[in-house]
Design a protein around this nucleic acid. Structure first.
Lengths: 152, 152
DNA sequence: TTTACTGCAAATATTTTGCAATATC
DNA sequence: GATATTGCAAAATATTTGCAGTAAA
């Protein structure tokens, strides 16, 4: 879990967004966000649903999909398609401080703490577009697959 | 369509891959690759299927999914999840020379010709991973949405 | 020949939608 | 109170699978 201060900032940002868009501040939305903030990496819908159920907070799939859309719109989480399986989400806050190493053989994803690419990307001159954040994916072969050869 | 020389290189690379993996060199696989090489940007399964049908080359969805998997494995195309709708594919060859600007309001995607991020990324020291290619996604607000306010 | 690949249709998985009940504003 | 949001189940989409026929090696 992130520190309390960061969590409060994210929460406040969500509240501001909901207010601005005249959307309702429901328990479901805040509880889902809270759960997401407890993850340190990627997650998908199924996993999030399970974790919520485990803490005895059941929401319908419809609500989950709806809330994730809202959170994406609010810019608090981002959507990745890192492998062929399922859509993965990640707190923008965390995604910003990592780049993603994706093994093209086994599909494994490694997060690598690195902020230099963001700094680099900020120097790019881009017209007719206001950049908010950056995601770098590096595709290649992880050391396991390199040694063992193809796993698939 | 790319120039003939590039197309031949891609085709040869596919042949080498199929040979190495002891996979068969079928007309379907080569025709699908050829069609993909005629696109200058992203495409999805539905669009590819249509375009193939238009040129009177019908393949089943099963074959299409199978072939796209093979092409991803071969490293010739990459898979993007650029918006919430559907998975999009792109020739790796083309993807490498562009970065992607994704509007968080309207979902529109703009490709921006830029290779400097690849050069930058190549300078990153990464252990236990052999990088092959790089993809930079920049999330933000496009000028249309900036002016008009939210479209959604 | 052998068996990988294809097409088709059926099975799964994923996401969206309709609608009545509920809770926010 | 008005109506956005929720839950549930059904519908719509997207993807995978089983299997018999076909074709590459």
């Amino acid at each position: 879990m992130m520190d309390e201060k960061t969590y409060k900032e994210i929460q406040d940002s969500f509240t501001a967004y909901l207010t601005e868009k005249k959307l309702r501040k429901t328990e479901e939305r805040y509880t889902i966000l809270e759960k997401i903030c407890s993850f340190s990496g990627h997650f998908d819908i199924v996993m999030l649903h399970q974790k919520l159920d485990e803490t005895r907070f059941h929401v319908s799939k419809a609500t989950l999909y709806n809330t994730l859309d809202v959170l994406v719109d609010a810019g608090l989480i981002i959507r990745h398609q890192l492998n062929s399986k399922s859509v993965q989400y990640e707190l923008r806050n965390i995604a910003e401080t990592h780049l993603h190493l994706i093994c093209m053989k086994c599909g494994n994803i490694r997060e690598l703490k690195n902020t230099s690419y963001t700094n680099f990307a900020k120097t790019l001159k881009i017209t007719r577009f206001t950049a908010e954040f950056y995601s770098l994916y590096i595709y290649g072969i992880c050391s396991k697959c390199k040694n063992k050869g193809s796993k698939k």
